[in-house]
């Protein structure tokens, strides 16, 4: 286990290093002068030149990378030309909102997909199964940002069940920041009104973010369960008089979870990336929205930071998923 962890973390360092070079080079060779874009069309030539010098844009790319990486290792990711602040500061402001969204979305993804999968398998070939199948086809086919717009229109504007923009209603005073996660902070402060308000704000974006993956995993679980239902070991368990619900919840569910968890891991890791457009649509003040802005304005340091953080999260989630799969499937060993 320890060897597995240290090996994966070491691999991770190389992956992140490679990713940093990749994103650094890509962001610099795409056309457009970041200095000019930062200063606007009416900036003077000398001002632009001065900023270029300041940003080391006149040096070769390897030299620029050297400046950037030495700073990054010391925890300095440079300055954003957009917000005129240190990127680290921006990130620490926007990251918690995204993490909160991804966590709530992930919880919905895991819980609801398992629930729907078991339900569909249990009531295989009945109307319940058919309804889940039908919903799944639609949900998988429609991308999350389209889903987000549809949800926003239906539940936010037409039915007005939930508020649609931001993390809290305008009149609300946000709870004192402890973790940066609005729902957790309001619980810590004991402010149930704020908690409920934050929940109402997060539920639509979280569902639209989770929906595609959730329905896909429900389908995978359903077919894994119904495949395994015909396995000899289930007939044997039945033959020994093991109670039905025990067979369902133990003998059938655990082996059926294995394919689901692999796919689920990928989906959970991609939530960060998929959050981009959903955050934009719901005006969610998160990292993805910040990153999107940075890309549109070629804010080099901000782009690198956002991509690196998403890469890092992807890495961590993947390691966690591998550990969970190894716990589920004894045939997989973590290579120690």
């Amino acid at each position: 286990m320890l060897r597995f962890l240290s090996r994966r973390l070491l691999q991770g360092v190389f992956v992140i290093f490679g990713l940093s070079i990749f994103i650094f080079v890509i962001s610099r060779i795409i056309p457009g002068d970041p200095a000019k874009m930062a200063l606007g069309p009416r900036a003077t030539e000398t001002a632009v030149e001065q900023l270029r010098e300041e940003m080391h844009l006149n040096d070769s790319i390897p030299e620029q990378y050297y400046y950037w990486i030495t700073g990054a290792l010391k925890g300095d990711l440079g300055k954003s030309v957009n917000t005129k602040r240190a990127v680290v500061e921006d990130v620490s402001e926007f990251l918690p909102a995204t993490i909160e969204l991804v966590i709530v979305s992930g919880i919905i993804l895991i819980v609801v997909s398992l629930l729907l999968g078991v339900l569909a398998a249990r009531y295989k070939d009945t109307w319940i199964d058919a309804l889940i199948r039908f919903t799944a086809y639609i949900g998988i086919a429609i991308p999350s940002f389209v889903m987000a717009i549809i949800f926003l229109l239906i539940f936010g504007l037409v039915l007005q069940w939930v508020p649609v923009l931001g993390r809290l209603s305008p009149g609300m005073t946000p709870p004192p920041t402890v973790t940066g996660l609005m729902m957790v902070d309001s619980l810590i402060a004991g402010d149930m009104a704020a908690f409920w308000d934050a929940f109402e704000h997060i539920i639509l974006p979280a569902i639209s973010l989770a929906l595609g993956g959730l329905l896909q995993e429900a389908r995978i679980l359903r077919s894994a369960i119904s495949d395994n239902m015909g396995k000899e070991y289930i007939a044997v368990a039945r033959g020994y008089g093991i109670p039905n619900n025990k067979i369902m919840n133990k003998y059938l569910l655990k082996p059926s979870m294995i394919p689901v968890v692999s796919v689920m891991g990928l989906d959970l890791a991609s939530l960060m990336g998929n959050a981009f457009l959903v955050e934009k649509i719901f005006n969610w003040p998160g990292l993805s929205r910040y990153g999107l802005n940075a890309m549109l304005t070629k804010d080099l340091n901000a782009i690198s930071a956002v991509i690196l953080i998403i890469g890092l999260m992807f890495l961590v989630i993947n390691i966690v998923v591998d550990i969970i799969i190894a716990a589920l499937d004894p045939r997989i060993r973590l290579g120690d």
Binding site: A235, V236, A237, P255, D329, P330
Partner: peptide
């Protein structure tokens, strides 16, 4: 009790 024809298939792979 019935002992299955295929011992490999008769035991659940994910439990001891």
């Amino acid at each position: 009790a019935m002992i299955s024809q295929e011992p490999s298939a008769a035991l659940n792979p994910v439990f001891t």
